[in-house]
Design a binder for these strands. Structure first.
Length: 599
DNA sequence: TTAGGGTTAG
């Protein structure tokens, strides 16, 4: 904690101080200034102003009321200087200001926002010592702190305790905060149940309550449920969506390629005279970039600038990521420079995108250089950064360096996530180290990571590609025994493994099982099977498979088509097959010069 | 109005 003299040193001087002082020293203004603390507080826009005012207030005789101090604390909290606000709170204590529940509530909120909920509960002790009954504001701040720190079980316990022990009557904020916590942990179902419960208890959900759930549903790909909830909010409750509600919906719709509906939403916003803000535009920029449509994203940015909204760090990061995904590093660097010129400092997300771009271009040296650059700039690599670099090393076959970084991330207390394990296992498999991958998988034990279907897909594929189809089969059986549901990729890699070994009978059995298990084959399944049949010169089922593809509206890819042409050219397949194939070939492949004699 | 909850990025 900063002591008083350090505080004064830290503060420096500024115009606000000089202004206050000049009125103060003239003497005549003393009384008016005294009564003007509230209006001075209203004018506070930066931390220094606030600290000057606090200093000035603390020298007054008598001291201003606790209300004035609370107002100042609120101002500091509003500009998000939580730890300074806490320092001021502590100084209030030592000045002997009689704290009330407002001061304590602000202090608790500051602790919680700083991820120091533990200290928040300690401050709660002040309430008891001063015989102040903690109210719903205080409990809400603590509940929010637990949610912020992902301590969802403790949050639920506190929530239940409030009700059971009648510590306070939960209000709409209490419910909304608890709902936010549930949503954060993907528990949309319970969140909805809580929404119903609050209605039962005659606590009216607000736009915030609805928006919280709508946003979570959108993030979890349940857009239709989100739209349903929106309808309920508008039609049944008469609550109109605001810009935040729209942003969540537009973001969700764009992310899942539902562009038409997204543009309808935008139109609806306009009709309701709600202006899109930087979040709205950034959601559009991001979605375009993720689809590789960087030009469209740039167009959105031009529109937003025309409308007086300016891209922020997040907008720039999305655009930089878009260029990096396309491997266009010169463009990415240009955007990076113009962002820096605008005074926006790149953060760990910016660098992770750039690293990803370099790795994508197999330019690992450049990636390593930038990795160091970011550390020199004081940015701390996070899990995504490490994942990107580890993948980059594996892609160029530098398994030892990948391993070193994997160890380093532990040392830097960055906990590997499921993506890390997928990257490492895939990297090992692709570098012919299937045994290593399998033993790492064993080491993972019965954790959640061990129940990741994507991990199984990687290992089955790796085993199959490295001539270990029996291992692949054991893994496949193992995941079923575990109660995991194979997805279409699992079937595809297993079928591919069987085909590679010439076990067409096995592959056919599995293929037939897909439909039964509620996992219908996709276009990749057919391509894998067809390639397997051709490579094994087993032509019996080929026509049937092509027919089924046609029925399902699937198309052939270049490599399968190429294989067909080779077989026809070698006289292994009849030319009459060409007509059949032409139906299954997408237009762009028809331009292939080798197909010019098709018609 | 002396305190609180919801939206964007790898």
């Amino acid at each position: 904690m900063m002591n008083r003299s350090a505080f004064i040193k830290f503060r420096g001087t500024n115009s606000f101080l000089l202004h206050s002082l000049s009125s103060f020293q003239s003497g005549t203004h003393k009384a008016s200034l005294h009564s003007n603390v509230s209006s001075l507080i209203l004018k506070i826009t930066n931390l220094n102003d606030a600290l000057e005012l606090f200093d000035e207030m603390s020298h007054r005789q008598p001291l201003p009321s606790v209300v004035k101090f609370n107002q100042l604390l609120t101002a500091v909290t509003k500009i998000k200087h939580f730890s300074s606000s806490l320092d001021l709170f502590k100084q209030m204590c030592s000045l002997g200001v009689q704290l009330d529940k407002y001061s304590i509530s602000i202090a608790i909120k500051c602790c919680c926002q700083l991820n120091r909920t533990k200290d928040g509960f300690a401050v709660l002790g002040c309430c008891f010592r001063r015989a102040i009954a903690p109210d719903v504001y205080i409990f809400n701040a603590l509940l929010d702190g637990l949610v912020l720190e992902d301590r969802i079980l403790e949050a639920e316990m506190l929530f239940k305790k409030l009700i059971k022990q009648k510590l306070c009557e939960p209000d709409v904020v209490t419910y909304s905060t608890m709902i936010k916590g549930l949503c954060k942990f993907g528990n949309n179902f319970t969140a909805l149940a809580l929404l119903r419960l609050m209605e039962q208890k005659n606590c009216k959900p607000s736009i915030v309550t609805y928006s919280t759930i709508i946003d979570s549903l959108c993030k979890d790909k349940m857009i239709d449920d989100a739209l349903k909830l929106l309808k309920e909010m508008v039609s049944d409750k008469g609550i109109l969506p605001d810009v935040i509600t729209y942003n969540s919906l537009i973001c969700g719709l764009c992310k899942f390629g539902r562009w038409d509906e997204a543009s309808k939403m935008l139109k609806q916003m306009e009709d309701e005279k709600i202006s899109p803000d930087v979040h709205t535009f950034t959601a559009l920029v991001d979605a375009f970039c993720k689809e590789g449509k960087v030009e469209e994203a740039e167009a959105v940015i031009n529109i937003m600038v025309e409308r007086g909204e300016f891209p922020n760090l997040v907008t720039y990061n999305s655009l930089i990521d878009g260029y990096c995904l396309r491997g266009e590093m010169i463009k990415a660097r240009e955007i990076f420079d113009s962002m820096t010129l605008r005074g926006l400092a790149p953060n760990v997300v910016t660098y992770s995108s750039l690293l990803n771009g370099c790795c994508k271009n197999l330019n690992i040296e450049k990636a390593v250089q930038m990795f160091h650059e970011m550390i020199v700039k004081g940015l701390k690599p996070n899990v995504v950064t490490y994942n990107t670099m580890i993948q980059g090393f594996f892609q160029v076959g530098r398994c030892v360096d990948a391993r070193k970084l994997f160890d380093e991330m532990h040392a830097q207390s960055q906990i590997p996530n499921q993506y890390t394990y997928r990257i490492v296992l895939e990297g090992l498999c692709n570098n012919r180290q299937v045994e290593e991958a399998l033993s790492l998988f064993q080491l993972m034990g019965n954790s959640k990571l061990n129940s990741d279907i994507a991990v199984y897909n990687i290992l089955i594929d790796g085993a199959g590609k490295n001539g270990k189809v029996d291992v692949a089969r054991i893994l496949f059986q193992g995941l079923i025994d575990k109660g995991l549901q194979p997805d279409v990729r699992t079937y595809n890699v297993m079928i591919s493994g069987f085909c590679r070994e010439g076990q067409l009978g096995e592959s056919k059995l599995l293929f037939l099982k897909m439909e039964e298990s509620g996992c219908p084959p996709d276009d990749v399944t057919y391509r894998v099977l067809l390639q397997g049949h051709l490579k094994n010169r087993h032509y019996d089922d080929v026509e049937m498979l092509l027919q089924e593809m046609d029925d399902r509206g699937y198309s052939l890819d270049a490599s399968t088509l190429s294989l067909f042409i080779d077989h026809i050219a070698a006289g292994l397949l009849d030319r009459s097959m060409l007509k059949f194939l032409s139906k299954l070939v997408p237009k762009e492949l028809l331009d292939d010069p080798r197909l010019c004699d098709w018609e």
